[in-house]
Simulated scan of single mutants.
Amino acid sequence: MRGLTMELSISHPALLAISDEDPSRSFFGGAQEWYSTEWSRRAGCGPTCASNILAYLALTRPALLPLYGYEGMGRADFARHMEDVYPHLTPGSAGLNRVELFSDGVVAYAGERGILLEPHVLALPGRMTWGRPVVSRLAEFIKAGLTSDCPVGFLNLHRGKEKNLQSWHWVTIVGAELGEDKLMVTVSDEGRQIELDLRLWYQTTPMRGALAYFTETSAAAPQLDTGNAKDAKAP
């Protein structure tokens, strides 16, 4: 029926709450400013997003516990986790601007800890690209990720008209409100929980982006969903 919406979320979003030494302050997911070097603080949104996803998988699946090597979710421990993840998703001169760099890095980090993860990736071409997926394809992909109980990494290279979003940036989707004319998402961005109109972004961005989530597998086989797009990879 027209006008109906569906609300989705990972099962335990509170697990991404990070405490601070100052008891009056807390965070929702990691913040790239916690990295130890200037470059990683400037360009570390991709590994920060991956750190959120990996920590959540570890905290919700006993078999995946090695993906997070610390006892609690305090800021100091989570920052150490981010440093552990970083070598596998080290940003280049243009940051982590290709989704393959993100998905391959997450799989490599997990593999080093004896865990096979299967990446699920949807490439999102810019607005003027022939064969671009319809916006409902984004909703279907986000629904699949959240119902599998995995946060969804989201890369955008230009924020379009979505003013709450930084350009050339990764954020972590933890919830969504989906409808025929609606695609609102809840994300972790720089240690904050914010809302984004992903439909507005997709309708107005001139540049590409991507979505990615991960599931456990006994025989990892990466799947790249290009949505029949011509420019699924970075130029």
Rank of each mutant, 00 (worst) to 15 (best):
R2C: 07
G3H: 08
M6E: 15
E7V: 10
L8S: 10
L8W: 12
S9Y: 07
A14D: 15
A14I: 06
L15E: 04
L16P: 01
E21W: 05
P23Y: 11
S24C: 06
S26T: 13
G30S: 06
R42W: 05
A43H: 05
A43N: 04
G44R: 01
G46Y: 03
P47S: 12
T48I: 02
N52C: 05
L54G: 00
L54M: 02
L54T: 01
L59D: 04
L59W: 09
R61E: 07
R61L: 03
P62K: 11
A63E: 15
P66I: 06
E71S: 12
G72A: 10
M73T: 10
R75A: 08
R80W: 12
M82A: 10
M82P: 10
E83V: 09
D84F: 09
V85H: 04
P87Q: 10
H88D: 11
H88M: 08
R98C: 06
V99P: 01
E100T: 13
V106P: 02
V106L: 06
V106T: 03
G111H: 09
E112Q: 15
E112T: 13
G114R: 05
L116P: 00
L117R: 00
E118Q: 05
E118P: 01
H120M: 04
P125Y: 04
P125T: 05
P125L: 05
S136A: 14
S136Y: 14
A139K: 07
E140Q: 15
F141L: 03
K143Q: 14
K143D: 08
K143G: 07
G145E: 04
C150K: 01
F154L: 15
L157W: 15
H158Y: 14
W168I: 05
H169W: 15
H169C: 00
G175M: 10
A176V: 07
E177W: 03
E177M: 11
L178A: 06
L178M: 11
E180W: 14
K182L: 15
M184T: 14
V185L: 11
V185M: 08
T186C: 06
V187L: 11
S188F: 08
E190V: 03
R192P: 03
R192N: 13
R192D: 12
R192W: 13
I194L: 15
D197Y: 09
L200Y: 09
L200M: 11
T205F: 05
R208K: 14
A210R: 01
T215W: 00
E216C: 02
E216N: 02
A219Q: 08
A219G: 05
A220K: 00
A221N: 13
L224Y: 15
A229L: 07
K230D: 06
